[in-house]
Design a protein around this nucleic acid. Structure first.
Lengths: 142, 142
DNA sequence: GTCTCTGCAAAGGGTTTGCAACGCA
DNA sequence: TGCGTTGCAAACCCTTTGCAGAGAC
């Protein structure tokens, strides 16, 4: 996704709520979209500080929270209680994480029917949601 | 799993490394195995404090870390940066989490062949590991 | 003009660490 | 007896919050 696309997508998503489009939010979104992998608030803060855009750390946290709320970002926790955020589409999908370079690709959700049938029959468990994560090597790293 | 089984399983796992079997560790493991869902360190600390076994919070954190290392516990993060731990077998499997009572059941891993093939072909991504989580209603809650 | 957002610094809270005493093996 | 473990409290560090000024609409 280009920066332009990211910007447009977030503009659209923000305007659904009563959110405002500020230059700080756009800078954060562009940076998050550019890394193509999970990034921490601190990391984004450092990257943005190196450029002209000096966005406060608190603003980054608040923006990431907002992005998550509107479905434009996904969160995970990595060692030492740090949260890492990934820019991604609000559509239902899963992630393929490269264990070498950290790049994350979206995986559309298809055909998990059989697994769900197994679940219902074996455990009598009715699934309403699921989440898959794949780890391995991306095209470039393999 | 009974407390006896949990105790035996952990004894075996600990003795693989140069770990010692202490009454605190056994108390923590029994408690963790008994809850059958994700529990935080603080929660375990409170539960153990109500019984005779007053185990220090730091010890609980250290033990949970050890259990995770030997594959006897799985970790997840829940709101506000808190870690929650689940007692589970070191075999490769997935989890079905009841969204009502929180109970977690193990799901043996079968037949994800097709999804992996899709991944390899569409994204040129070679999976080496995966992790599935299912959310829904368990037998009792549905 | 109004109402949200930002930045700073301080507060908050879960987790880790240092160290002396303890207790498995 | 030796060395890993425990408990306590302090230290850590990521994250959140309060508030006054700035800025989007």
């Amino acid at each position: 996704m280009t920066k332009e696309q990211a910007r447009r997508e977030v503009r659209a998503a923000l305007s659904v709520g009563s959110f405002r489009v500020t230059k700080q939010r756009l800078a954060i979104v562009e940076e998050l979209a550019a890394v193509e992998r999970y990034a921490t608030a601190k990391e984004l803060h450092q990257r943005l500080s190196q450029k002209r855009s000096g966005v406060g750390l608190a603003t980054i946290y608040r923006t990431l929270e907002t992005l998550e709320a509107i479905g434009a970002a996904s969160v995970r926790t990595q060692g030492r209680g740090e949260s890492a955020y990934l820019f991604c589409s609000p559509e239902h999908h899963h992630h393929a994480v490269c264990t070498k370079c950290g790049k994350v690709e979206d995986v559309p959700c298809r055909s998990i029917g059989r697994i769900e049938r197994d679940l219902t029959q074996a455990l009598r468990f009715k699934t309403t949601q699921h989440r898959f994560e794949f780890f391995g090597l991306c095209d470039r790293c393999s």
